[in-house]
Design a protein around this nucleic acid. Structure first.
Lengths: 130, 130, 130, 130
DNA sequence: GTGGTCTAGACCACC
DNA sequence: GTGGTCTAGACCACG
């Protein structure tokens, strides 16, 4: 599990950390019951402050990607039902804004659909297809 | 042209203003050579700080949606070629993160494509179709 | 609105801040659309670190007591439906543990009910009774 | 005597162990002069660190639920008078915070009293009623 | 001036 | 060793 960060990005570091772990789960690099590195360990590893990693983990917990086991630390435990409504609302809004700009720029809808297609083929694990 | 704002959103107000105007252009409510309201007027109208409207207009200018006419103020003038590369980069990245989360939540790719389809049918003006 | 803190308590300061504000809302000292003091202002006032107040506000937001208005800061906006299930679960568990200990100590159930009665008469606002 | 633990809970494991034993005493599953399992044995049984069980036993001793017998280990020996004042103080405070939140959520006082009633009927042993 | 982000470093509770 | 809490102080985005 490699976490790539762009310190020059406008995207907060804790968001990038969270996104990388979410990506790892999508790709199957991380599966249920896997232990994440400790907050301090990961912080040292990727050279950010402990609190930054902590914030990423807290969000992952709130969204239902991990749980904090008092003995083992952060453990992957995917349980997304509760947060899916909230997610869909922001996803739809973001997609709307994106598509509107695509339209204004003359980007055809098939181009966008192809992007979606490509992303699904990259990230969808074999055993999830149907 | 109605501008809807959510002051509790995590999205900056100036971004919301910009997005609403971009939406108006997509829908044809605003077309080339239309004058936008004055910075002060709009600010008073939607009850935000003048600087906030100013920032929205500045971004619209930078992205190629409007030009600033000394006498007429902000005038719609769509010229997006220059900013399209930049847009596509962030759009792809945002779409990637969104799709990854959809995958983790078991949302099928056809659902996402349908969302794209719906948005195109809502926002694509007749004369742009082909 | 006075916030009383006990720095020697085992209860985290941010929890105490949160509880005091929740109490203020119950008592009607704070009502919908009231503005809370700024994070920094309150922090200076009660002599704690900004981040500690910030954490209290974040929890109040997550629980549905306040919203963050980009123009006005933290604003009371009570919307508890979403978090009530979660609350009831921990309340029932805490009450269970408390009652069990009362039973072991020979405290009669009417004594506990009287405590509940007293608390309701202290904190329930007139207009909520029925 | 079954001890149920939730390793993902915000409640420390030693507290959970203590609470489960207190519950067993309330239910009459454990009565005066019963021997608790050895620290090592219980720790192995419920898969926690030996120190964690040790801490739970120490608190049970301090609160007057058990005594430590050199030969027999931890032995149930209920003697709660001394700790009841301390208990009542934290119980009242916890109940206060809980009730305040109930009030804010529109939960009627009879609902809370019913919860108390239910808990008493579940946990109060026949021979203690009066 | 507001909240949001990030760092550095400390202490504590828990396991 | 772990995560949780708290402080102090900095910079930035926003309004």
């Amino acid at each position: 599990m490699i976490i790539r960060l762009d310190f020059d990005s406008e995207i907060p570091i804790y968001t990038q950390i969270k996104d990388e772990i979410v990506k790892g789960i999508a790709l199957g690099d991380l599966t249920d019951d896997d232990e994440l590195p400790s907050v301090r360990g990961l912080a040292a590893d990727i050279e950010v402050n402990m609190h930054t990693v902590n914030k990423a983990y807290k969000i992952l917990k709130d969204e239902g990607y991990i749980r904090i086991d008092r003995r083992r630390g952060a453990v992957v435990s995917v349980n997304l039902e509760e947060s899916t409504n909230r997610f869909m609302k922001t996803f739809k809004r973001d997609l709307e804004i994106g598509v509107i700009q695509c339209i204004n720029r003359g980007i055809p809808k098939d181009k966008v659909k192809d992007l979606v297609e490509d992303l699904y083929s990259i990230y969808l694990k074999e055993d999830q297809r149907g």
